[in-house]
Nucleic acid binder design. Structure first.
Lengths: 224, 224
DNA sequence: TGTACATCAGTGAACGCGCGTTCACTGATGTAC
DNA sequence: TGTACATCAGTGAACGCGCGTTCACTGATGTAC
């Protein structure tokens, strides 16, 4: 049964709402995102938005899910473009950085301080995991160079990560990958949020070299 | 010339103001910190606060500087308690983590997403650097194990870090130290801000082991 | 195919809220002669 | 030491702001017979 005109209209408005909210967020940040302002931009009374969304929080959720999707898509593409594992991981982290630079408020929304009062619903878990899946996939069958001992209390959790993403990656590799992500998010937060002030000028190289060293903890085969 | 009674009273109120503002911040976070609420708690009309502070931003600055000082003091103590370099660095990062856990909103204020609209004045630079000085001091005379090539565009900045803190540390060590900090802030943000959701249960061990591996990039002499 | 009723997107007014900041004032403290 | 003036901490009322959300409404779209 084809969707009715009303249903199609509803979908169209909903996606326009998501778009406009995303554009507002990019300008004013998550905290200042306002139902009224978005409604104004849609040419609608603020009460109209409540036909599509039960609250401001739900509007935020719309933007969050959309942002996770867009980021994941970019990273998946970047990773997929390379068949050399090491290059693929690096392409992935650089894609994350590029997206973060292009959409700093969105980056902050996903990976910065939580928005006060907002509790992310279950809906946001799955789209969030797509990024991690993309970043870790090239590590299938790859082991760390160093000897890594995974603590007994961590093994199960770390195995669960690989299982959930349906990837064949050792606990040791997952452990090192998590540390790589921490370093990546740390470097990005430092440069985007302006901690460390202006001590490092050439942030491109700083990130590139740092990530290269982080990736070189893995024993990738020589690229052919 | 002894300070007048008025001057002493002013100091007392100013420090009480800082205290109360800090306590409010710990509860509601930086964004929701309100001049009126703090004033109420001080038993003062909101206009009274403006005798001490020109704006809400200046109130935030008061809290920020105070927080940097307190954090730095804790870390300095933790680092100073050990004369083994490796143990000292680890004591430092664990002190940071403990403080972050005890004061998550303060941590967010200093190292999370910037508060929208707030621009940190010059005054906050110096207290911020105390933490870095404490964390890096134990690395004097220590080199990384791995071969580290510091990119030409980064050398000057990295040397400046050591110079400014008046410490005798090689560019290579500063570079690796910066990556260690990035990893630390990354891990802390991940666990405090709840990204990665509940994939890792035993966060204590996760942080401890991750930081140990990060520190082991340095060739510390065997402790006697 | 045509009619009667049900659904629901969009309207416009209103509620109640707390905020940052300004201003003219008062009375106590400090300073200069 | 005593007096006259200047400073300035604390007061209370007011300004103007934008916000999230509710509610009773209208008219167009959809559904069942």
């Amino acid at each position: 049964m084809a969707p009715t005109a009303r249903a199609r209209a509803r979908q169209a408005v909903l996606s326009e709402l998501t778009d406009v909210a995303g554009r507002h967020l990019a300008e004013v940040g998550p905290v200042a995102l306002s139902v009224r302002a978005v409604a104004r931009d849609l040419g609608m009374p603020s009460s109209g938005v409540y036909r599509y969304v039960a609250s401001r929080d739900e509007l935020l959720t719309l933007v969050i899910v959309d942002a996770y999707d867009r980021l994941a898509r970019e990273v998946e593409e970047a990773v997929g473009r390379s068949d050399d594992g090491r290059a693929a991981v690096l392409a992935g982290v650089h894609a994350v950085r590029r997206w973060a630079h292009d959409h700093p408020h969105h980056y902050a929304l996903l990976y910065g301080t939580p928005v006060p009062g907002y509790v992310a619903p279950e809906t946001t878990i799955e789209p969030a995991s797509r990024l991690y899946a993309a970043l870790i996939r090239p590590l299938e069958g790859i082991e760390p160079i160093e000897a890594v001992v995974v603590a007994p209390t961590l093994v199960a959790d770390v195995v669960a990560v690989a299982d959930q993403l349906q990837l064949d990656i050792s606990p040791e590799s997952v452990t090192v990958a998590l540390e790589l992500w921490a370093t990546m998010f740390g470097m990005l937060s430092i440069e985007l949020f302006g901690h460390l002030r202006s001590t490092i000028g050439d942030l491109d190289t700083w990130f590139t070299d740092g990530m290269a060293r982080a990736v070189d903890r893995f024993a990738f085969p020589e690229p052919k």
